[in-house]
Design a protein around this nucleic acid. Structure first.
Lengths: 202, 202
DNA sequence: ACACTAATGGAACACTGTTCTATAGAGGGC
DNA sequence: GCCCTCTATAGAACAGTGTTCCATTAGTGT
C-alpha cells in the first residue's frame, strides 16, 4: 500500500467552484492578509499553477469576486414597488445586508486595496451601472417631489456615501453605536428627510 | 579623487524627519503599494537598518503616522464658538479638509489596511478620543434641542459615517458628483436637518 | 484502447519585511 | 588636536510573496 506518487488530479469541472469557494472562505476567515495564492490552492486542494491556467493569477480571482459581487449587489438594489421613497430605503437596507452577508465580496469591492489589482474596464463599468441603479431610485423620488434642488447624481452620491461609510465602519468593527441596524436605519431615514422637500411652513 | 567606500553617515538628528518625510512623500506619490522599507530608506538617504534601529520597523513608522494624524485631526475638530450646530458643520468640513490635505495620514488611519499593522492600545485610545470630540459636539447640540431622541454616540456615529463615507470615496476617486465640496456640504447640512428637531407642525 | 489535454510537484526569479554581521564614520570627552 | 564610544552603514541571509517554466502523468474525449 504505497502512497500515490502525486495527488490525484482534480476533475476540471470542480476546479472553478473549489477555487472560488476557497477565496471566499479565506477572505471571511483570515481576512485579506491570508489570501495568498498558495493558501488558496491548498484549501481548494489544487496545484498553485491551476490558478494561473484557469484564472489569471490572483488578480483574475479578485476580478471574478468583484464582478460577482457587483452583479449580486445590483440585483439586490433593484427594488421597485409603487413607492419611490420606500424603495430607496429598502435599497439602502439591502446594501447593508449585502455587505454583512457577503463580507468577502464587499471587502474586495470597497474596503481592501489589493496590491496590483486594478479591475478591468468592463468590471468598472459594471460598478458604474450599479451606482446608476441608485441614481434611478433618486430620480423616481424626484418625480414625487423629493430631493428638490439636487442633481440626481449628487443626491445618489450622498446616499451612497452614508451607506458605504456606515457599513465599512461596521465591518471593520469600530462601530461605537449600540443597535447597529437601528442606527443605520436612522441614518438613512434621517438623510432622506433632511434632503427631502423644503421645510418651509406650508 | 576616489569614491568614498560607503555613503557618509546621516547625522542622527536628521534621520527622524528624513524618514518620516519619505514615508509621507511615498504614500502621497506612489500610494500604499510603493511604501516598502527599502524605498523609504532610499528616499530618506538612509540605510534600511536605520528604520529598525530608530523606529520599530515598518509598523513603527505606520504607528507614528497614525498617531500624528489623529493628533492633528483631533485638534482640527475641536471647534467651539457659541453656536453648536455651526461648530458641528465646521468640524465636518474640517474633517474633509484634513483628509484632503493629509492624504497620507488619512490613508493610514482609515483607508488602507497594511499587512500586519495593528495600532497599539494607546494609539487606539487616541483614535477613540478623537471620536469623543464629535460626541461632545453632538451633546452641545442636544442642549439646544437638536438630535432629539438619539443617543449622542449613535448620532456621532451617523455623522462620522457620512463624513468618512463621502471622503473615502472622494479620495479613491470614484466620486461621480460634480462640485465635491458643495455636495459634501449638502450631505452634512441635510443630515443635520434630518436628524434635527421633529418636523411635526408647530 | 489510444491520443491529447491539462493538472501536478518542484525549481527558480524578483520582490517583500526582517535579522545579523563586520566595518567605519560621527560625536563627545579630554 | 586626539581618542574612544556609539551607531549608521553595506551586505548577506531568511522566510514569505506573486509568478513562470519544466517534465511528468493522470484525466478525458474519441
Amino acid at each position: 500500500m504505497a502512497m500515490p506518487r502525486r495527488m490525484l488530479r482534480t476533475p476540471s469541472q470542480r476546479i472553478e467552484p473549489a477555487v472560488l469557494g476557497a477565496v471566499v472562505y479565506i477572505l471571511n476567515e483570515d481576512g485579506p492578509d491570508g489570501l495568498t495564492v498558495r493558501a488558496i490552492a491548498k484549501r481548494a486542494k489544487v496545484a498553485p499553477m491551476t490558478i494561473y491556467n484557469h484564472f489569471n493569477g490572483k488578480n483574475g480571482l479578485l476580478e471574478i469576486v468583484w464582478t460577482d459581487g457587483f452583479s449580486t449587489l445590483q440585483q439586490a438594489l433593484g427594488i421597485e414597488t409603487g413607492d419611490p421613497a420606500h424603495d430607496l430605503i429598502a435599497s439602502a437596507l439591502a446594501y447593508r445586508n449585502f455587505a454583512l452577508e457577503h463580507r468577502a465580496h464587499y471587502t474586495v469591492m470597497f474596503i481592501h486595496h489589493f496590491d496590483g489589482f486594478v479591475p478591468s474596464i468592463p468590471a468598472t463599468q459594471l460598478a458604474a451601472q450599479t451606482f446608476q441603479v441608485l441614481v434611478n431610485h433618486i430620480q423616481r423620488c424626484q418625480a414625487v417631489g423629493l430631493f428638490e434642488g439636487y442633481s440626481a447624481t449628487n443626491a445618489a452620491q450622498m446616499m451612497w456615501s452614508a451607506c458605504h461609510g456606515y457599513v465599512s465602519i461596521e465591518l471593520t468593527s469600530v462601530n461605537f453605536s449600540s443597535d447597529h441596524e437601528g442606527t443605520f436605519r436612522s441614518l438613512i431615514t434621517g438623510l432622506l428627510r433632511g434632503l427631502g422637500p423644503s421645510l418651509s411652513t406650508p
